[in-house]
Design a protein around this nucleic acid. Structure first.
Lengths: 359, 359
DNA sequence: AACGTTGTGTACATCGTTGTAAAGAGGCAA
DNA sequence: TTGCCTCTTTACAACGATGTACACAACGTT
C-alpha cells in the first residue's frame, strides 16, 4: 500500500486505528499533486478551476499528476474557504409519501441543473424538527433550504435567527420576510367540488379536515364550502371527516365513518390522493360502486392515481413548476440575501378520470 | 444590523455584493464566542464538546456567550479538521418510485439514530451517474455511501479508486471487497410462483424480465423457472414479458401484450409491485377479473398494494431490516476500513392478499 | 521550602482550498 | 541597455475547529 499525502501529525493520531491496513487511504490533496507535478499548489488549484492563464504544458503536467494520484477536491475545505457548499436541503414531512417522493424527484432533478446537490430531511410533521431544520441545524452545511412545513408556525419563522436562505412550500404563514411557493388552495378545492357538483352530486363529503389547525386543510375546506354555497347546497358538518394524517389508511377509516351516516354521500372530495385511494378502497370493499354510487376526487396527481381502478380524478399541482419556482427563488435569495421576499403561485389543473366519470 | 464576526479580508471580497444589507449575516465563530466570553477558542471548543475539565463558572460564561451570539459550529470546518462529516449518501435509481421512497424513509429514519444525516442521490439508472456516485463525486463530503445499483458492473466496483466506505443494496455483483445487503431473490421468486401454482394456476406469466442484463430480474426469472420446473409445468418463453423500467405504465403495457396471446395466462408474477398494479389496471379495464380470471402477485410490499382494489399480494422484503443491515455494515466499515467485506441477507415474506385470493 | 499531582486554561499548528499581492519571465519600444 | 508592458506562476494568509503540548494554578506530600 502506498501512502500518499503528508499525513504526519504531532504524535500518534487516535484516528489511526491499529493494524497495518487499519487506516484508510485518505486521498491526495492539492499539495500532493503540486509536489508531483513540480508546481505550486495555487497552480494546481488554477488548473482545477479552469483559470485561463495557465500554459498548455503546465496544464498537461498538472492534469497528469491529478490522474496519477486520483485527486479529488475536498468540498469541505472548499466550502470553508469559499462559503458555498453546493448543497441544498429539502425538508418534507415524509419522503415515503408519494406526493413528496415525486416532488423530491423533480427537485433533485432540477437542482442538478443549478449545480446543487439535494440533502433530504424528514420532519415527520414534528414541529420541533421543523423548527430545527429551519433554524439551520445543518449549520453552514447547506447554501439554502426548501421546507414544506406542516406544523411550523408564523412565530417560528419570525424568530428565525439564522439567515440561511429559505423557501417555504405551501401557504403563506406570515408576513415575515420569507419566500414562498404556493398554490391557490381555495380555488383548487372549489374547482374540485364544483366538478363533483357538475356531475349532479349533491351530498358531497370532504375528507382530510384538520380542525383548529391553520394550513392547507383549512384552505381546502374553505374552497369546498365556497363551491357548495355558490351552488346553493347546504354545508353539513357531518359530511366533513377529519384526518390526522394523509395516508391511505386514514382515508379508508374516514370513509368508513361517512358510510355510517343515515344519508350517505354521493361524492367525496379528498384533500389528497392517498386519502382518496384509501376512501375508494373502503367504498369498493363495502359494495359501493365508484363513481356510480360515489364519485371521488383527490389532490396531488400522484402517478398511482392514473393506474388505480377506477383511475383517480384529481387536482394536479404543477410539480415541475413548483420545483422550478422554489429553486428559482432560492437561487435569487442566495445571490442576493436582501431581495424583497416574493410569493410565487404555481398552477394547478383538474384532471378528470374514471372516479368522477359522468354517468 | 450588528455585524458579528471577524469578517475582514484582504481587499474587497467579490462575494460581498453591493448594497449595505447585501451581505448575509454569516454567523458567529468560535473566535467570536471566545472574545465575548473572555476565554480562548479552545475553551469554547471544549465546552461545545463537553470536555470534562471545565469549571462550571467558565462553562456558564461560555454558554451565555454562545446563546448571545447564537453560535453554531461550522460542520465544514469540523470535518476538515476531524475527517468526519456525519453525512451518508444514499443513491437510488428514482426517489419517486414507491419502493425507493419507502426504503429511503426508513433509512433516513434509522440513520438519525446513528447520528447521520442522509444525502439522497438519484442515478436514474444511468451507469455513468452510478459510477460517479460510487467513485465519490461527493468526495470527502460523506462518511459513507449506500448505493442501490441498477447498471453498475462488477468492474466498476473493482476499479473503484476511492475508499469511501460503500454498501451495496442488491445482488452480489462481484467478488470485489464490498459490503452487500441482499435478498434471496431466487427463493422469493420461487415462493411467489409456487403461491400461484398452489392456487391451481398453470399458465403463469412473468412481467419484468430484462434479457441480457445480469441483476435482479435475472434472479427472479430463475426462481420463477425453478418453481415451474418443480411443479412439472412447462416454461414458455411467450409468457415472459420484458420491462425496461419498472413503472406502472410498463406493467400495463406488458400485460396488454400478454393478453394478445392465443392462450391467455391465468396468473402473473410481476417483478415488482408497480408493474403488478399497472398489470392489474390493464386486466380490469379489459374486462378480466382479478384474481378470478388472472391472479397477480408483485414484489416490494409498497403501502399502495394494501389499499388497491383488489389489494395486492406480494413478496415483502423486510425494509426495516434492510436499512438496519445496510447502516450496520456501513458503520462497521467506517469504524474499521479493513474489515472483511460481508454479505448480509435480509428476510422476505409472502403476503397473500386479494389479488391471489383462493377461488 | 521544595516537590509532585491534579485540574484548568492557553498557544499553536494543522486540515485543504482559494483570493490577493507580488514576483518572475518574456517581449517590445525607447 | 533600460524601462514598461503582458502573461504566468508563486508565496502567503485566511476560512473555523480541534489535538497536542505546555503553562499555571491550587493542592497535598515529603
Amino acid at each position: 500500500m502506498i501512502r500518499i499525502g503528508s499525513r504526519r501529525r504531532y504524535g500518534r493520531d487516535p484516528r489511526n486505528r491499529a493494524g497495518p491496513e487499519g487506516c484508510a487511504d485518505v486521498g491526495a490533496s492539492l499539495k500532493d499533486v503540486a509536489l508531483l507535478a513540480g508546481v505550486s499548489m495555487k497552480t494546481v488549484s488554477n488548473v482545477v478551476n479552469d483559470y485561463p492563464f495557465v500554459t498548455p504544458e503546465t496544464r498537461a503536467k498538472v492534469q497528469r499528476a491529478i490522474e496519477t494520484l486520483d485527486y479529488r477536491p475536498n468540498l469541505s475545505a472548499r466550502m470553508l474557504r469559499g462559503g458555498r457548499t453546493g448543497l441544498v436541503a429539502l425538508a418534507v414531512p415524509e419522503i415515503g409519501a408519494p406526493y413528496f417522493a415525486e416532488l423530491a424527484e423533480v427537485i433533485v432533478q432540477q437542482a442538478k441543473t443549478h449545480g446543487w446537490t439535494v440533502l433530504i430531511d424528514q420532519t415527520l410533521g414534528d414541529r420541533d424538527t421543523e423548527r430545527l431544520v429551519a433554524e439551520g441545524i445543518k449549520s453552514h452545511l447547506v447554501d439554502g433550504l426548501i421546507v414544506s412545513p406542516l406544523t411550523l408556525t408564523a412565530e417560528d419563522i419570525e424568530q428565525r435567527r439564522v439567515t440561511t436562505p429559505l423557501v417555504l412550500l405551501g401557504e403563506r404563514l406570515t408576513a415575515a420576510p420569507v419566500d414562498h411557493v404556493t398554490i391557490d388552495n381555495v380555488a383548487g378545492a372549489r374547482a374540485a367540488t364544483e366538478h363533483l357538483i357538475t356531475l349532479g352530486r349533491s351530498r358531497i363529503a370532504a375528507i382530510g379536515n384538520q380542525p383548529g389547525q391553520p394550513g392547507t386543510a383549512a384552505l381546502r375546506l374553505k374552497g369546498y364550502r365556497q363551491a357548495l354555497r355558490r351552488a346553493g347546497l347546504p354545508y353539513e358538518k357531518g359530511l366533513v371527516a377529519p384526518a390526522a394524517n394523509y395516508h391511505r389508511r386514514d382515508g379508508a377509516a374516514a370513509m368508513l365513518d361517512l358510510l355510517l351516516l343515515e344519508d350517505e354521500p354521493d361524492a367525496v372530495f379528498c384533500f389528497n390522493d392517498t386519502l382518496a385511494l384509501g376512501a375508494i378502497r373502503t367504498l369498493l370493499s363495502s359494495g359501493r360502486r365508484v363513481p356510480d354510487d360515489v364519485a371521488v376526487i383527490g389532490w396531488d396527481d400522484i402517478d398511482e392515481g392514473g393506474f388505480s381502478t377506477p383511475s383517480l380524478s384529481t387536482i394536479a399541482p404543477n410539480k415541475d413548476q413548483i420545483a422550478e419556482l422554489a429553486l428559482g427563488l432560492l437561487g435569487r435569495r442566495i445571490a442576493d440575501s436582501g431581495a424583497e421576499p416574493r410569493e410565487a403561485v404555481a398552477d394547478f389543473s383538474l384532471i378528470a378520470r374514471e372516479s368522477t366519470a359522468g354517468l
